[in-house]
């Protein structure tokens, strides 16, 4: 298979998340999520960014849980079938309409689950876009005009995976020394020093190699859109339109 343009998947997943938000339907969200999972599973990219879909799923699930619990406990009362009743905390009179605790109805639970699911799906879709596109390749197609942003992006994307391996290395070194799980600060300090040093090294290397010298960049083996990219993007867009239409 020909390599995709780095923007292709970003376009697909952005249109899907717009579709999910506009349609505001849990079914659409679930379908989009399954689609994203399928694409991530099919597209085997090498590289540390590959895991970002999984991480975004974890983050999304966490958010969903938080949203469901807070939604059920705090908020405007909603009439419906009561599942169970929580003790109610009385609030001062100048906070009318808001309550903590009280009756938890099916309607309230489902509506907060529904909202949580939409948010979690949007997060997961961005995670998926990240997971199938090399950040380095993405940088190569960004316009030179946003030079400063591109520098920041490069440093962020290349430092992050190395950060994970540094954390592992420092943690195991300290674990071996004391036989105990090391405290957060004891990892954070060597880690901070190392990442700062690394970021400075990278920035120096970019500068020494003339980055930002010329307003116009040329492209070695430029990345162009192929019919494959365009058709995939069209599929993404159509899916989004379909979601809104339904």
């Amino acid at each position: 298979m020909k390599p995709f343009h780095p923007f292709t998947f970003w376009a697909i997943f952005t249109s899907l998340s717009v579709g999910v938000v506009l349609s505001d339907s849990a079914l659409c969200a679930l379908v989009a999520l399954c689609g994203a999972a399928l694409i991530v599973a099919l597209k085997k990219d090498e590289g540390p960014w590959r895991n970002s879909f999984r991480w975004s799923l974890i983050a999304g699930t966490f958010l969903l849980a938080v949203r469901a619990i807070t939604g059920a406990v705090i908020g405007v009362p909603r009439i419906g079938r009561t599942i169970f009743t929580l003790p109610r905390i009385s609030l001062p009179s100048w906070l009318p309409g808001i309550r903590i605790g009280g009756d938890v109805t099916i309607e309230r639970l489902t509506s907060s689950l529904h909202e949580g699911l939409i948010i979690a799906t949007v997060i997961a879709l961005f995670g998926a876009a990240n997971s199938v596109t090399s950040p380095h390749k993405l940088l190569r197609v960004l316009p030179t005009r946003i030079y400063q942003l591109a520098v920041t992006l490069t440093i962020a994307t290349s430092v992050f995976p190395q950060l994970i391996s540094s954390i592992y290395r420092i943690r195991s070194a300290q674990f071996l020394r004391s036989g105990k799980r090391p405290a957060l600060t004891s990892i954070a300090i060597p880690l901070l020093e190392e990442s700062l040093g690394r970021a400075v090294n990278l920035a120096e290397s970019m500068e020494a190699r003339g980055y930002g010298q010329s307003k116009i960049h040329s492209r070695y083996r430029p990345i162009t859109y192929s019919t494959q990219d365009i058709s995939w993007m069209a599929v993404g867009l159509l899916a989004a339109i379909a979601m809104v239409a339904i």
Binding site: H136, T154, G197, E204, Y211, S218, Y220, R221, P222
Partner: peptide
């Protein structure tokens, strides 16, 4: 620490691209 791209060829091209060398 000083590599910017993720493949060998792209890394080599990086400096020349910044200075707008013809392909």
């Amino acid at each position: 620490d000083t590599f910017i791209a993720d493949t060998v060829e792209d890394e080599l091209a990086f400096g020349m691209e910044s200075l707008n060398f013809p392909p």
